[in-house]
Amino acid sequence: MSLQLQTNIAKPDSFYNRLIDMQRDLSEEEVQMMNAKLILLLSNHIGEEEVLFEAMDLAKP
C-alpha cells in the first residue's frame, strides 16, 4: 500500500474543527505534547513503514 493522498475523510470540516478546538485552551507546551502523541498514535495505527516514511518525506519542509 502507498500513502493515501486522495480525500479519505468523510467530513473534512468536522475533523478540522475538532483538531483546532482541541488546542484552543492549551499552552504551547501542551499542544506540542498533544501533537507528538497524536503522531505516535496514528503512526502505530497505520503501521506500515513504507507508508509512514512516505508521509514523513512529504511533510519535510
Binding site: 506540542q32 505534547m33 507528538a36 502523541k37 503522531i39 505516535l40 498514535l41
Partner: peptide
C-alpha cells in the same frame, strides 16, 4: 526540544 517532546510522549503513552 521537540525530540524531547516526542521522547516524553512515548514514555507517557
Amino acid at each position: 526540544k521537540s525530540s524531547r517532546v516526542f521522547r516524553d510522549a512515548v514514555l507517557q503513552l
